[in-house]
Design a protein around this nucleic acid. Sequence first.
DNA 1: TAGCTTGTGGTGCGATCGAACCATAATACC
DNA 2: GGTATTATGGTTCGATCGCACCACAAGCTA
Lengths: 203, 203
Amino acid sequence: MPRQVDHDQRRRQIAEAVWRLATRGGLEDVTLRQVATEAEVSARLLQYYFGTRDQLLLGALEILNADAEQRARERLAMLGEAPGMHAIVRGVLLELLPLDEERRNRHLVYAAYFVRFLSDPALAKVARDAPHALENLVAGLIAQGQELGQVPRDIDAAAEAAFLVSGAEGIQTAVLLGQRTPEEAVALIDHQLARIFAATTRG
Amino acid sequence: MPRQVDHDQRRRQIAEAVWRLATRGGLEDVTLRQVATEAEVSARLLQYYFGTRDQLLLGALEILNADAEQRARERLAMLGEAPGMHAIVRGVLLELLPLDEERRNRHLVYAAYFVRFLSDPALAKVARDAPHALENLVAGLIAQGQELGQVPRDIDAAAEAAFLVSGAEGIQTAVLLGQRTPEEAVALIDHQLARIFAATTRG
DNA sequence: TAGCTTGTGGTGCGATCGAACCATAATACC
DNA sequence: GGTATTATGGTTCGATCGCACCACAAGCTA
């Protein structure tokens, strides 16, 4: 038989169909038949590559997460070598915003899964780790900024990092709902960063 | 026939069943049969009181919103007469946090509806107004605080209000996912408020 | 008392759901 | 060149879906 096919690519093709459907109508629109049609494969193939529906939802989420991580890494790498703390933190936070179609859709998929994260342990595990890691990363960068004199000493790095990450996530929601433009979102982030990365140390 | 029944109460009884199911398993678990069972009424009654499934989802959301608004008003009134700007802003922001079972469930219901807000105009209309009103309220309170000398003049009231509200919403998500305790959430809010409502004006 | 209106239960229909089953073409391995 | 394995399509089954329809009891109106 055709061993020619790339298993991962097939799974990705199907996962993307899941994302599109979830983005449009929530998980209740992610039926095996609809996914098969959207992915332009037979319903049988879904079972072959993913098994049951729950496994399909889980698998599609895992692929989404892997994508997000890699893209974030790429974007950070694009900042060039030896970027300032300010620029790195900014890059991390902007990554959370739905600034392009790709990130927008990604966050919509997360939104569609959200309630499941609370009841399905398998899904929860996949989605639980990222935010804390981000927060610690930002906190560490701010602390480094303090040692470099780019950030006032009286700033609470951990508390500010937590609020920055949470703020970015909240803004993300507002942008998705059309309550705020992407430009406004970036401006809000920059306003807070300007406060924290005050060039003139005063503390 | 039995006019004795209170229409609104019946609708509420059914709406609460919708909330519980949506909270547990998302909108895909909100089927007419399941809602009927959960509300302990016949499936036929759902149709009588709400009509189609879409109308049921819309109606249940409207009731939830009305509840949220009233409870928020009550809680703000409990602050006593002539509370300080700081206390009012704090009350508004804390209202966004899932600090008790009621608010937690409410936000979970919103989460379950989220993706629908983007595609269903009727739902979107119901959920679109609140955040902006909140933001303007907070911005106004901060501006008042500036005139009273409770807030430094160099604070950008609008930008800070927007970030506070978004931050509270983001923190809410983290609390729901168990990534942060309610106590930590309140502490984060208070940390930002302490910065903005700095007793000693320095700007 | 007759009849209309409102609230309630039950039931049925066509569509669709997730999942299993059966068939088979293509190829790698020996 | 056989043969086991991998990839794919098609089909079917029992359950459940949303929703419409029918029946009827309980009150109000006349």
